[in-house]
Design a binder for these strands. Structure first.
Lengths: 196, 196, 196, 196
DNA sequence: AATGAATGAGGTTTCATTCAT
DNA sequence: CATGAATGAAACCTCATTCAT
């Protein structure tokens, strides 16, 4: 009958936050940020609307936290060794990792892809990850240059287009789009280009 | 002040419909279907809410009509000569036309791209165009096969990914993404493949 | 069947605004700003909650408009002739007018008196009227000085206290507090002081 | 670590009750009864919401207890010697005490003044003190009569108005309103009237 | 005695849609 | 054809209160 300890409370909060955020990712992905209601999210999370507001001070805040949380997770995956050099091997690893992360978080990426197209919501979210992303692009740029590729900028555009196009088609129809096949195809393309 | 003829009336109606639909495309693209209010659309179209409902019986209907109308327009562009054969030249024309259409209707494609990611809204709209699209893919398939390309399916996946990836990046940031450059790059890629 | 003219719409809006504001004054006076719900106000005004928001963009805004509107009305009563001189006669008239205005707008003054005690709400409202009020006090100050009153500041404090005390007691219990009697008493007090 | 005695427990409870009530007075004065949340009060008291409900069974109950507690305290100050006679000296003492009590409990009086204007909340609270108050008025009435004052009722109205007006102005702006000056002024007024 | 997670009713606000004019 | 006032359902959010620990 003694009251819960601070640790117990913290664990409850942390676990419930995760439950809510996961529920929200699902509903946002299905209905879009604006189309999803807080009631739906609470219901999917198995809690009352009121409690959701105990954990997140608004629907907007909930979205921000989801993005922030995902960004933090992805940082870890992609933070390259900071020697400033990206080898061809690392590049292939990066591509594969990229697809793996998407496959493991389809709903998150669906949500994120929709946000990218929605300026009015996009401006709500932090863009810390943009910098990491830009750094990575820079490393790939250097790799392409070192590998004797002529039109480096064009090749980078092609890379981002292929990858983003594959991801968008996959998250739009995860049960039908053959993501593994396109992944192989992209890797194959670069195997030739980077003439390992 | 002679009374207007039936034709005149119909033309007026048709023009106003277009004005409303264009306003709606803009607002939908900016705010998403759910985030856009009928008031905003009416205001942007320069008419009253009531009149909007005179032309479209609901917000949903308005969306459907936009999609249908765009599909009709695009039919015209892409309906190939029905001889069942797509030449390499026609293929290149098709790619170029594709990008041109996107560049001329950025907001429409932004809206459409967002819809593709939103199953709950997507199911509202007609999918007549899907068939045309599938036919076209079939023609490209045949062309690739005829051209001695080995992994035809993989190559098709790569094509749709590159194009969709380019489009999505462009509509997300039309002022910054170098769409012409990626267009050239894609064309170049197929110039090699199709060994014209 | 022809649509309403702009004038007709303006009249409707103007009349309904007044109806809503009057309903709100009553409910605010009875329940306080925070204790009054928009539903109550709409019900008392005989309209739907939604319509209220067509006229006032928030409950706060409604309060502000009430205060502003009242201030404007009261300006007219009290704007003195701008010769910068207040005669004893004018002073008596001012006191009487003051009480009359309160008696004719009990609920408004009840609301206003409560607001004065509530800093968190008070800061929402404009204080344009404060200046007019300060000017008036200045004129009374001069009158008292001209009339040979010794402790002018003390006498001013006494004046505002008597008047405000009378008003507060009256608005708290309008059916029981003998406002006319206290009014006479105050006037009598100054008749002696100003030895007309 | 000997177990606490019943007395110790009760003292602890009593002290905590006081802490909570003081916190509540502050928050009620700042935000009004309806605008203050139980969370704010608990936070200001430095305890949890749950514990607050251990001491007071509802927000309403907390308000009632505050009023009751204050009334009890004030009884002590003002319960006159029960000989049924109020001397002029005692009257002056009463006035001074009155202002002193207000100055020492600004927030309580601010809260109380706001309540007086709010019938819907006012009816929640006990009005035991009203009787004491009425008795006191009676004693003052007698004093005025004995002192040869002509319009006794009018003079009583003036008295309550002056005092309440001074208090209300003071509690509305305690840092600016010169309460000591108006206190002297009122005392002076009665020194003349009661021709001591 | 003490905590804060949890609820649910009810508050404020928005908006698709209808309708009198 | 055209207006915008009006509605009502449903959205977001708050908060007094309860309860397991």
């Amino acid at each position: 009958m003694s009251p819960r300890t601070v640790e117990q409370y913290e664990q409850i909060r942390s676990e419930k936050r995760t439950i809510i955020m996961n529920a929200a990712i699902e509903v946002f992905a299905e209905k879009s940020f604006q189309g999803a209601s807080v009631s739906m999210i609470a219901q999917k999370a198995g809690i009352s609307k009121g409690l959701l507001y105990n954990y997140f001070k608004s629907k907007e805040e909930l979205l921000k936290e989801i993005i922030k949380n995902a960004a933090d997770t992805i940082y870890q995956y992609f933070d390259p060794n900071h020697d400033g050099i990206l080898t061809a091997e690392e590049f292939f690893f990066f591509i594969r990792k990229n697809f793996q992360v998407v496959k493991e978080n389809v709903n998150y990426w669906k949500l994120y892809s929709a946000l990218v197209l929605q300026p009015s919501v996009l401006k709500l979210i932090d863009h810390d990850f943009d910098e990491v992303s830009a750094n990575y692009i820079k490393l790939v740029y250097d790799l392409f240059e070192r590998s004797g590729i002529e039109d480096v900028e064009g090749e980078l555009l092609l890379l981002t287009s292929m990858v983003k196009g594959a991801i968008i088609q996959y998250v739009a129809m995860p049960d039908f789009f053959p993501i593994d096949k396109i992944e192989s195809k992209i890797l194959e393309y670069y195997r030739n280009k980077l003439s390992v």
